[in-house]
């Protein structure tokens, strides 16, 4: 089975994120970048499918700047076989739909039975690439998957809805986006981290994919970035439990008017 996993190199969720002084974007200097947490679930699932038997290959692919190779190597250290880096200055400004277009041009040229992505990237939080990629490849997609199994050429997936879980069956190939809880991603073993260093990563630019600047120009354009307005500081109550509780309830009723 040929499994492709789309991954993104993103700032660590612990990072303090601030806008640039001119508000044109986010200050990225000094941020620590890692493999997108949701993509870790996707990579882990792909590797588990490979380990469960049969002859499978896991290829990880990313659209990203120079440093994104680190996330590809992290995935390879976990157990992925091949890495592809879609790298071009023209790709740096594109939007989520553009990323899906770029990925589809590369994926189109590869054999694939299953494509896995994380449900969203923790930087832009768009959650678009999975379904958009599926549309461009003309294959079905299942979003926000918490459980999946491959059974005779089909995938059965549990997709999270509000207050419910939908069980869907889909022919392969298909695109599935991974949700937290799909699995517990492994820590890469040290020898594998060292081995991943030596793995050759294929690099493709816009020309190699036959894409012009217009093809990858963002359709959704960022105008500005700002910090959210701070929440007004509230009131802290201490003291006798019964009195504090009584006062809180009174405030909720009369001041906040939420009861």
């Amino acid at each position: 089975m040929n499994i492709i996993v789309c991954v993104k190199h993103v700032p660590d969720t612990e990072a303090a994120i601030k806008p640039l002084p001119d508000g044109s974007g986010v200050a990225t200097d000094g941020l620590n970048y890692v493999l997108n947490p949701y993509d870790e679930f996707a990579v882990e699932e792909a590797i588990r499918i490979k380990e469960s038997g049969g002859d499978s290959t896991v290829t990880v692919i990313t659209v990203g700047p120079e440093d994104a190779t680190k996330s590809l190597r992290t995935a390879i250290a976990m157990g992925a076989d091949e890495g592809i880096h879609l790298k071009d200055p023209a790709f740096l400004e594109t939007d989520a739909q553009g990323t899906a277009a770029i990925l589809s041009e590369a994926v189109k040229t590869l054999p694939y039975d299953l494509i896995l992505c994380g449900k969203q990237a923790v930087d832009d939080d768009c959650a678009q690439v999975g379904p958009a990629l599926a549309e461009r490849l003309g294959i079905p997609n299942v979003s926000v998957v918490t459980r999946m199994s491959i059974e005779s050429g089909k995938v059965v997936a549990h997709s999270e809805l509000e207050g419910a879980t939908q069980v869907l069956e889909c022919t392969l190939p298909a695109v599935l986006t991974a949700q937290k809880g799909l699995n517990e991603p492994r820590y890469p073993k040290l020898p594998m981290i060292m081995k991943a260093k030596r793995k050759e990563i294929k690099i493709l630019d816009a020309a190699a994919l036959g894409m012009s600047p217009e093809d990858v120009a963002p359709k959704a354009k960022r105008l500005s970035v700002s910090t959210p307005p701070p929440r007004r500081a509230g009131r802290v109550l201490e003291g006798d439990v019964a009195e504090v509780v009584k006062e809180t309830v009174r405030l909720l009723k009369e001041e906040a008017k939420v009861l």
Binding site: P11, I17, P19, V225, S226
Partner: peptide, 17 residues
């Protein structure tokens, strides 16, 4: 829209498409 889990806000538009 919130980005980076709401740590910052982004203003965007789709001018042409």
């Amino acid at each position: 829209r919130p980005i980076y889990a709401g740590k910052v806000l982004e203003k965007i538009s789709i001018p042409e498409a």
